[in-house]
């Protein structure tokens, strides 16, 4: 037998009280467990909701290894953009650009263009890394889903407009070293140029492989790609390119 100490008596009394309270209602209020939210700021309560309330399936395995908890943990850019609601003041924007620039890793052997035909498929595919009630197959290549937000091949009518049109991107800019470098960086981590942009960081987040990025870049820049059907004479000058 364990001797009754102060703590045991307290716990027993609390349990008895909780039992009485439980009898008074048909269902024990869920809020009686855990901390009192009314003592929290909305920001603290939101974090509690994400990580402590059981609202999300945090223990579910994810395609990249580990579990879904890491999907919910914010890195610095995610946090800063959330806090400033995607409108960072100048000093925060400068910090984001600096973090983004430092994050970019380049392929060994330089930035090469891959196969635009494979890029065309990847630009249309929205597959990959979804978890929850249904899980995407990790063995199937993830797509960049470019058409969700950008116009590319002018014959593809199902394009979104959250981002700018990329039709004739290579036609207007060529395929030189500086263009390839910029396009690679925009796909890898676009916050290096547009702090708090809506565009995902396909490289930093390991969403697209180096190879997939090279195919999508070819789709954008290759003169043979349907993204570059050509322009009317003088259009480049009118657009300042």
């Amino acid at each position: 037998m364990y001797p009754w100490n102060h703590r045991t008596v307290m716990v027993t009394a609390l349990l008895a009280l909780a039992g009485v309270a439980g009898c008074a209602q048909q269902e024990t209020p869920e809020r009686s467990r855990g901390p009192d939210p009314l003592q929290m700021t909305p920001e603290a309560y939101a974090e509690y909701l994400v990580f402590e309330s059981g609202s999300f399936r945090l223990d579910q395995p994810v395609q990249e290894g580990g579990d879904a908890r890491q999907r919910m943990e914010q890195d610095e850019i995610q946090r800063l953009c959330s806090e400033t609601r995607n409108r960072p003041p100048a000093d925060v924007a400068a910090r984001i650009v600096r973090i983004a620039r430092e994050s970019i890793r380049y392929p060994e052997g330089g930035i090469q263009l891959g196969d635009w035909r494979k890029g065309a498929e990847l630009a249309r595919s929205g597959y990959g890394y979804r978890v929850g009630h249904r899980n995407d197959d990790p063995d199937r290549t993830a797509g960049g889903n470019c058409y969700a937000c950008h116009q590319m091949d002018p014959d593809e009518l199902g394009y979104g407009n959250l981002g700018p049109s990329l039709t004739n991107y290579g036609e207007l800019r060529g395929q030189g070293e500086s263009v390839r470098r910029f396009v690679y960086e925009m796909i890898y981590n676009p916050h290096a140029y547009f702090p708090c942009t809506n565009m995902p960081r396909f490289g930093v987040n390991d969403f697209l492989s180096e190879e997939s990025i090279s195919h999508i870049m070819a789709y954008l820049l290759d003169p043979e790609s349907p993204v570059n059907p050509g322009i009317e004479p003088g259009e480049g000058e009118r657009r300042g390119l």
Partner: peptide, 13 residues
Amino acid sequence: EVLFYRRAGKMDF
């Protein structure tokens, strides 16, 4: 509202 603006996950959305 905080959750609405909270960006996270593999696509930063």
